[in-house]
Simulated scan of single mutants.
Amino acid sequence: MTNEHRSGPVRSTAAREAILDATSRLFHNQGYDRLTIEGIAKEAGVGKQTIYRWWPSRGALIGECLAEGRLVPVDFEVPDTGELLSDVESWLRSVLSILDAPEGGVLLRSLVAAATEDAGVGQHLGQSLGVEEHLGSRLRAGIRAGQLPETAPVQEIGRAILGAIIVEALGREARDPESVVRLARFLFSR
């Protein structure tokens, strides 16, 4: 008898989706600190071993949710109107709107906590916010257009801006999202 028509792959796909959905839901409801593999397994209706078969840690699981747009679902593309500073400011205001949304700061702080456990989360965070792809692409277009020097360190500029966004999110008292915009204005003023 052949196993070609087994429901294993279908169940695996369904289990994977249930796990990612449960992780996203619990992450948003409880934050990273209270998120456990046991809780995810219970919420998803699977065993812990099923989760560990695909992900080595809760940080890796968060990283995948982030990479799939389950935690930060907005697409943060950088416009290209020909005005580099204006385009970067527009992108920054979109990203900073996360902090202004209900629970936005908590979400970002939880993602930073997850990144301390799994470096992939930090990488996925930058990708989700469009730092590597969209901002980097727009900065390279700015170099080609003569709006930035040819030697402008595109990757480092993106990381500096992402770092400023994260530091702003970590500051729980007097938040000033405009400080990140002022940083961008300084970086791109000529």
Score class of each variant (00 low, 15 high):
57 S>K: 10
80 D>M: 01
87 D>N: 11
86 S>I: 12
69 G>P: 12
67 A>F: 06
68 E>S: 08
105 G>R: 14
107 L>M: 15
105 G>E: 06
66 L>Q: 09
105 G>Q: 13
87 D>C: 05
82 G>C: 04
105 G>P: 01
82 G>F: 07
106 V>G: 07
66 L>Y: 05
65 C>Q: 08
106 V>P: 06
91 W>K: 14
77 E>R: 10
69 G>T: 10
95 V>K: 10
93 R>Q: 12
111 L>Y: 02
73 P>L: 01
92 L>D: 09
72 V>L: 11
107 L>R: 15
101 A>M: 09
87 D>Q: 14
76 F>I: 04
108 L>F: 04
71 L>I: 05
69 G>H: 09
97 S>K: 07
67 A>R: 15
78 V>H: 10
65 C>H: 07
98 I>L: 13
102 P>N: 00
83 E>P: 00
110 S>T: 14
80 D>C: 04
83 E>N: 11
86 S>H: 14
92 L>R: 13
76 F>P: 02
53 R>C: 03
56 P>S: 06
63 G>Q: 07
82 G>I: 08
95 V>S: 06
59 G>P: 07
52 Y>Q: 07
68 E>A: 14
104 G>M: 02
85 L>E: 15
108 L>S: 01
71 L>H: 04
53 R>K: 13
97 S>M: 07
63 G>F: 00
71 L>W: 01
70 R>T: 01
72 V>Q: 02
108 L>M: 13
68 E>W: 05
60 A>D: 12
51 I>S: 12
99 L>A: 02
60 A>L: 02
82 G>A: 03
97 S>P: 08
89 E>N: 11
59 G>S: 02
103 E>Y: 08
62 I>K: 02
69 G>A: 04
79 P>E: 04
66 L>N: 07
55 W>P: 11
67 A>Q: 13
78 V>Y: 09
61 L>F: 06
101 A>R: 15
60 A>C: 02
111 L>Q: 07
95 V>F: 06
63 G>H: 05
55 W>Y: 15
91 W>E: 11
91 W>T: 14
